[in-house]
Design a protein around this nucleic acid. Structure first.
Lengths: 148, 148
DNA sequence: GTACTTGCAAAGATTTTGCTTCCAA
DNA sequence: TTGGAAGCAAAATCTTTGCAAGTAC
């Protein structure tokens, strides 16, 4: 299913073109929204933002574009512990994996990077001979501001 | 939303009774299935197994019981990277957190425990002053058998 | 020009809700 | 006995599919 999981900092648009994917104006709009987002968007968020610029863009196109990006390993799919129901959230994949910290009280999502996390992945790959292509870590709890 | 996140090895049935939850025969049946399962079950799996012993048990009761167990922090909800669509899988919470390794080729799910993982959680709690109550780690990739 | 993509409508999959009847404590 | 739980039906939510019309290359 996964076409390629190599990660790049190139804009998603360039990345798709270089892979021979046809660049429609709908796809261009959607990937630009994903890349400039300051928070994690779900399909509905993405559709609503896209419609502000192209009111004819259909929700189905959002789902199909997300499926395309997932297939190419260019976005990560999160569900942030289902704090808001069963939605899936998307973010452009970066070069470094990170952990999502979801506050169960205020709903804030923080990101956390750590060399321990990199070591943990290495341990899994060595001890289980498991080749990791995607990792998702989501921790729920209470952030500094919500512990009083 | 979360009532209590303390974890116990006591049977789920005893745990629920001690929390003053009414123990119906439907709940008893469902928690016994969850605890004796040798793999991760989703709501439909659970319903099908339950119906073998009580053909009148309704699917809605499965969802309501899972919501109850989640609220009490007695089960963890996984989606195993959506390998099989958007289903949620459940497992009785154990005393030690573990990582789920999902093979993208054969679909096998392995579990992995590590002191590095415990250290990583400690680092998050210290550096971000974030009190973790639930963690989910899911790694996708290729297991030893699927790399040839 | 042609194969791929979109929009639209409809279906599919999963989960939740309203309400009446039933039952555990 | 009585408040909470189950069953049933229906609705809600999220996602996918079939197909005709449109478009990138």
């Amino acid at each position: 299913m996964l076409v390629e999981s190599r990660v790049s900092r190139r804009p998603l648009e360039q990345e798709l073109i270089s892979r021979g994917v046809r660049m429609t104006h709908q796809r261009r709009l959607l990937v630009h929204i994903i890349q400039s987002a300051d928070r994690h968007l779900d399909a509905l968020d993405l559709w609503q933002k896209a419609r502000q610029q192209d009111s004819t863009l259909n929700k189905v196109t959002v789902y199909r574009t997300l499926a395309l990006l997932k297939k190419h390993g260019l976005v990560d799919e999160l569900d942030l512990l289902h704090l808001q129901g069963g939605r899936h959230y998307y973010e452009a994949r970066t070069t470094r994996d990170h952990i999502h910290l979801a506050c169960l009280k205020c709903g804030r999502i923080q990101e956390f990077e750590s060399s321990l996390f990199e070591k943990l992945k290495g341990q899994i790959e060595r001890e289980r001979r498991f080749r990791i292509t995607v990792v998702r870590v989501e921790a729920g709890g209470y952030c500094d501001k919500c512990q009083q």
